[in-house]
């Protein structure tokens, strides 16, 4: 197994917000974590990337325990987290942002090649490469955030609601980018989405998180057919 969470418990100011969840992501898989607002999805990602300490539980990546590590060491082992707020650097150029995505990489020549390839694949970013990142549209900023994550050449991507706040056309484009990344680079992805329809289209498997507990899990087809999902998340 590439990535595994075992019995993770997380507290915020005394309140238990993640109540002993376990989940797995295999090599080359897209796994989605579905759940309404406040279920604990973002908290789970923040614990994985080392931004927040868990109360108990274990996180394993490629046979190595990675819970309670600094964010730097999590990036180093090959996990990149793109938060919902995107956290690009608004007053730096698109190009500077992309270069910083490769901050920990030592293979300078490959970084240069990767950057060129990436710009070919993302013409929107190439057009605006000298522009300040903060002047991009919301959708372009999301694409930039994902592209920066790709520059790290990581094995597992953690995406927190990438389609949030975007126009329907942009949502389509982001969806295509995510599935391309998975197919072409065989990067594994743990995807959080409010847009459950999109999430189930992109994912191989999924987990449903409700108030800190996993209440349902299965393949994307199983979840799409589930009465519970239809009622609670697909509006009918």
């Amino acid at each position: 197994m590439l990535f595994e969470i075992k019995n993770l418990v997380v507290h915020y100011e005394g309140a238990e917000v993640v109540k002993g969840i376990s989940l797995e992501v295999d090599e080359g898989e897209v796994v989605t974590l579905i759940g309404s607002n406040g279920a604990g999805k973002t908290t789970t990602l923040r614990v994985i990337s080392g931004l927040k300490s868990p109360t108990s539980g274990e996180i394993w990546f490629q046979g190595q325990r990675i819970d309670r590590q600094t964010p730097q060491s999590v990036v180093k082992v090959g996990i990149i987290h793109v938060p919902q707020s995107r956290e690009i650097f608004p007053y730096m150029s698109v190009l500077e942002n992309l270069r910083l995505g490769a901050f920990l990489r030592k293979d300078k020549d490959n970084v240069k090649k990767d950057l060129e390839n990436l710009l070919e694949n993302f013409p929107r970013l190439k057009q605006r490469s000298r522009q300040q990142a903060g002047t991009l549209s919301g959708g372009e900023q999301q694409i930039l955030a994902i592209a920066c994550a790709l520059m790290a050449n990581s094995k597992l991507l953690l995406l927190d609601e990438p389609s949030c706040g975007l126009s329907p056309i942009m949502v389509q484009e982001i969806g295509k980018i995510i599935s391309d990344i998975n197919r072409q680079r065989s990067t594994s992805i743990l995807l959080i989405e409010q847009n459950v329809r999109l999430a189930l289209k992109l994912a191989h498997r999924g987990y449903v998180l409700e108030t800190g507990k996993i209440v349902l899990q299965g393949t994307a087809e199983e979840l799409t057919r589930s009465e519970h999902i239809k009622k609670a998340y697909l509006g009918g």
Binding site: S49, L51, T70, P71, Q72, V75, K76, I80, H81, V82, P83, S85, R86, E87, I88, F89, L100, G101, F103, L104, C148, A152
Partner: peptide, 9 residues
């Protein structure tokens, strides 16, 4: 936070 998430100490 963006800096942290890119591995900057």
């Amino acid at each position: 936070e963006g800096a942290l998430l890119r591995g900057i100490n």
